[in-house]
Nucleic acid binder design. Structure first.
Lengths: 163, 163
DNA sequence: CCTCCTGGGTTTATTTTCTCAACTCAGCTT
DNA sequence: AAGCTGAGTTGAGAAAATAAACCCAGGAGG
């Protein structure tokens, strides 16, 4: 009864995603980037990360195309670089919102969460400020699926293990 | 024009969530638990993690109530313990699905993802095997929000920084 | 009752990674 | 020319991860 083949985890996308963004500090840097931080010194000040580590993390994020270096020049300053999320980096938003939501549910201060993510409708749309949450939904239209109503099925790239 | 107060990140739920599940291997252990793995040796074999590290990670996960030790006894064996996700651990599902989805989009093998998460309707419901994705939706009913249509607003626990 | 086997871990040594602090460097201002 | 600033390097010490050997409680086999 337990004979269904196991899916190997060697090429699982979760591992690969974590290989890119799973190092210490990396998701926090991305979070600050979503909060609008762009400059080396601001990341450093807000996170309290060591500067050499921040430098290597930013390099990795640029290499993996999660962030991009953008030249800028302040009036009366020399040219420098700042860091912004690429579309690939912006697509990490659900990961961060999911972590935020989990942390809010189980680890928040008694007075409540410190950040609420709200919907900001684009220009020309009717304004909306409703709080945002992350939900699981299936292609058949069922939404807000509970976490135990999911099944892991092998995909086209699956490698199976005999049990 | 940049005078809106910044939200401090000291009590952000993302940091707190990452303090619990952000260490190396932790989310991979949780992933395996979702895949049905329960025993020390199976975690070890499937992940290739060193046994001492697995032991400390499992201890931490039990302490933080993400997992639970459950006694079991195989016929002709002595009593041992296995590990299962608590409801708190099960609530990490959206985090893992979000990571999976991001990895599938940007890092999968050319032949496609190795795992597809499908909806498994509960007993008594009409069966559904449609693939599942994670989406951002707002309380006003807007669904599948793009990652840049969000705004971080201070919540009740927010500590603000003067800019 | 003595030995072997098995699953689930410790212990110990080595390597890698993080942290902290000091230092560099290019160019702008005085 | 000297000093300041933001954005990093460099290097030493502490902490964490890896690897591999070892331990240990009990059941099975003899």
């Amino acid at each position: 009864m337990d004979a269904e083949p196991q899916i190997s985890s060697v090429n699982c996308s979760v591992s690969r995603a974590l290989a890119v963004v799973g190092e210490r500090w990396t998701l926090l840097i991305v979070r600050e980037a979503f909060a609008g931080v762009r400059r080396f010194g601001d990341f450093r000040a807000r996170l309290g990360i060591a500067s050499n580590l921040l430098a290597t993390r930013l390099d990795t994020l640029v290499e993996t195309e999660v962030m991009r270096r953008v030249p800028y020049r302040e009036p009366g300053g020399r040219q420098r670089f700042e860091y912004e999320l690429t579309p690939r980096g912006a697509d990490l938003r659900p990961v961060l919102v999911a972590l935020l939501q989990w942390g809010d549910k189980y680890l928040a201060d008694p007075e409540g969460p410190s950040v609420i993510v709200r919907h900001r409708a684009g220009p020309g749309e009717t304004p909306c400020e409703a709080p945002v949450r992350v939900v699981l939904e299936c292609a058949a239209g069922h939404s807000a699926l509970p976490p135990d109503s999911l099944r892991r099925a092998p995909g086209p790239g699956a490698r199976l293990i005999e049990p």
